[in-house]
Design a protein around this nucleic acid. Structure first.
Lengths: 201, 201
DNA sequence: GTCATAATCGAATGTGGATTTGATTATTCT
DNA sequence: AGAATAATCAAATCCACATTCGATTATGAC
């Protein structure tokens, strides 16, 4: 799946062939079908794994007994560092979401391929992914609401602010190149500073 | 090209067929080839037009005799409002850049299609687009440098800050739905406020 | 060592979609 | 009107995939 993420980052979902992905792990395209039912499930696997990784790393932060501003700072750092460490998955999270959204239509149009049950199972799994993603985003919204209630953050429109924040984070996967002038950590710190200053009273 | 942008936003470059685009303007796929040499040039046309629109709107702002903080505020508003007004083009600017980057490879692999001269012409036009995009991004960097020199902005890492800013802006094209709770103007104001607070000393 | 199962591959299969071709039909210009 | 040019289309071409099939080769259990 990591290899797939790499190829996906370079070429994009539709342009990436099963052969490309297979070549990246020294296999033939046919062999991939022992491990993934089809191309859509492979993509979904990539995204699921990436999202769960971040969610796991967020757990200790969210339950820590620290003030909202410190919590948010840690979340931003963790997310940005995560994206920078694995830009291929980060970029997939940005670019390939849409393939997933329209997967329903495409699957339906290419009917005959999958059975009704298989299709339903896939869509359910996809929706579960989106639900998990919302859990992730909601954790940011909650921390910011807490900070506003506590009076340490100025009152902002929380959904807009979080979209702003996440746009900046996601974009890191697009422009960050490891080995560049700054480390992922350094970038994460800068961004945390930026958004905390924007938020503090 | 606007119709193409719409279809592109929904389906993505590779998944969008010439037939889809043609249908959006009540034509057949074949007819499109009277107006665009091929699919890549159509995409490039969409992106070029979108970028030039923003660049034109930036001109008066950049030459205005106002302090850096006011200049930046206007630029942010203009850009965000522009993206919100035309999310399809905004989203294309985010999602389809990669198709353009890898266009060289794809074109080369599908050799026999284009002549060497046609290929060179296309690549030159593509590079010109990226150069224009850099002009756009550089204008943000310059204003921020000016503000730092003038002592009104705190010293930040300018490239990182601008990437942060542009990530947030671009993302608007992904999540904004017209007719939602807030207008593009309102969102633009919020975002300008966020980034100016992050920057002011 | 043998059997079952997992992995792998080479060679089809079938299809969707970009692009071309060769007319046919509008427009425009004079 | 009549010629020249622009737009349009239906049908054909052509090929790059995703996916399947059948057979072959590891691997692991006992």
């Amino acid at each position: 799946m990591l290899a797939a993420a790499d190829v996906l980052q370079k070429r994009g979902y539709e342009a990436t062939t099963m052969k490309d992905i297979a070549a990246a792990v020294d296999l033939t395209a046919a062999s991939l079908y022992h491990h993934f039912r089809n191309k859509d499930e492979l993509l979904l696997g990539v995204l699921e794994a990436g999202l769960e990784t971040v969610l796991v790393r967020f757990e200790p932060i969210l339950k820590a007994e620290v003030p909202p501003e410190e919590k948010l700072r840690r979340m931003i750092r963790e997310h940005v560092v995560g994206v920078a460490q694995n830009t291929s998955v980060g970029a997939a999270m940005v670019f390939e979401i849409r393939s997933l959204i329209s997967a329903a239509d495409r699957t339906i149009s290419g009917l005959g391929k999958l059975s009704a049950e298989e299709r339903a199972a896939f869509l359910a799994r996809r929706d579960a992914f989106f639900a998990r993603r919302d859990v992730f985003e909601e954790s940011f919204r909650q921390v910011i609401r807490d900070g506003i209630s506590a009076g340490v953050f100025r009152p902002v429109d929380v959904p807009i602010f979080v979209n702003t924040l996440l746009g900046a984070h996601n974009w890191v996967g697009v422009w960050y190149k490891s080995g560049g002038r700054l480390s992922g950590e350094a970038i994460a710190s800068q961004m945390a500073e930026t958004f905390l200053r924007a938020l503090m009273k």
